[in-house]
């Protein structure tokens, strides 16, 4: 296979846990992301799924260098950019951009939409004023925003239109990679479909690569070529969408998939349910052995001691479980 666009190796990100009001002292560290490897190839979509708090956003922010990492490396087109700064970092950020669940939260409410879309170009000093204007118009058109919207303010837009603005801000940079953190989670189904289609169109027309984080597993199935399932900061299963969805080997992936409500009353009534009990444990104090063992429906005594490593089959499908499910 060709050289990946983006490669992360052993990425580990922790946050200090502090006590005290005036003299804050560090009493521990939350390991939000713990040794994650990842490769993203040109034109593909890689999805990251898992319950809230498992480290998806932290990993994404680390990958685009919005969050410093404690250990590991990030390579862009074969070059190590983990510790780049200044000009080199700016260049990287032009090519790897990010969109968020609520793009409006990051917009200045007093700035007109056109200016907001242009802002990243201004920040990076890209093009002449005339060129910037042209690129903004192109980007807005591409994402289905009307040129008349140029002079409006963020609050005048509905959820779907807001997400289009967020996407326009990302594509105006003409990036190669977009990291999308929960891009459709706040949207109603009818609008969600518009944004899913838009992301697919942009990928095809602009040759983009995506990393998509989403908690809607059906949306992920639609968009992703490959999927990684995370639990408490670690990747517990990875493979093609087909591998992970139709033949999950890790009991956590299987339980996550089984928890999806089925939009078919006849199937919903007949479905066997294994409801995953309890909550995700605190990452401050992760369980011993396999981190999933306290909730695992097939755990054996040894699971409380031995921490399984992510192992791969010949077809690339990988799982971190000592007692994997039959395919």
């Amino acid at each position: 296979m060709s050289e990946p666009i983006l490669r992360a190796t052993g990425v580990t990100i922790g946050f200090p846990v502090t006590r005290g009001i005036i003299f804050q002292r560090e009493v521990g560290r939350v390991q939000a992301v713990d040794g994650v490897d990842l490769e993203l190839h040109a034109g593909e979509t890689l999805a990251i799924v898992g319950e809230s708090g498992c480290g998806k956003t932290t990993l994404a922010r680390g990958l685009v260098r919005l969050q410093s990492i404690d250990a590991g490396t990030i390579e862009y087109l074969g070059e190590d950019i983990t510790r780049r700064s200044g000009r080199g970092l700016t260049d990287f950020r032009r090519q790897v951009t990010m969109i968020f669940q609520d793009p409006i939260a990051s917009l200045d409410p007093r700035m007109r939409i056109g200016q907001s879309v242009q802002e990243p170009l201004d920040i990076h000093g890209i093009g002449t004023p005339v060129e910037r204007k042209r690129r903004v118009q192109e980007a807005m058109e591409r994402v289905g925003l009307n040129p008349e919207h140029y002079n409006r303010f963020p609050h005048e837009f509905s959820g779907g239109q807001r997400q289009r603005i967020g996407i326009a801000r990302a594509v105006v940079m003409e990036p190669r990679v977009i990291v999308c953190d929960e891009p459709v989670s706040a949207l109603d189904v009818s609008v969600q479909a518009q944004i899913v289609n838009l992301l697919e169109d942009l990928q095809r027309d602009l040759g983009l690569s995506y990393i998509v984080i989403a908690h809607d597993l059906d949306v992920v199935r639609r968009l992703a070529d490959r999927v990684k399932v995370m639990y408490l900061g670690r990747v517990v299963e990875e493979g093609t969408g087909e591998q992970v969805y139709t033949a999950p080997r890790h009991p956590y992936s299987s339980a996550l998939l089984a928890a999806r409500p089925v939009a078919d009353p006849v199937r919903a009534r007949s479905q066997q349910r294994i409801v995953l009990e309890g909550d995700v444990p605190s990452p401050l104090n992760p369980p011993s052995g396999c981190r999933f063992h306290p909730r695992c429906p097939v755990a054996q005594p040894s699971c409380a001691q031995e921490d399984p490593r992510l192992e791969h089959a010949a077809d690339g499908h990988g799982w971190a479980c000592a007692y994997p499910l039959e395919p």
Binding site: Q161, V191, D216, R222
Partner: peptide, 21 residues
């Protein structure tokens, strides 16, 4: 609504979308 559900429409080339809002 039913046609735009990604889980019910895996085979469709493009997800049905209700235009507008």
């Amino acid at each position: 609504l039913l046609a735009s559900l990604p889980g019910r429409n895996l085979a469709s080339e493009r997800l049905h979308q209700i235009p507008g809002s």
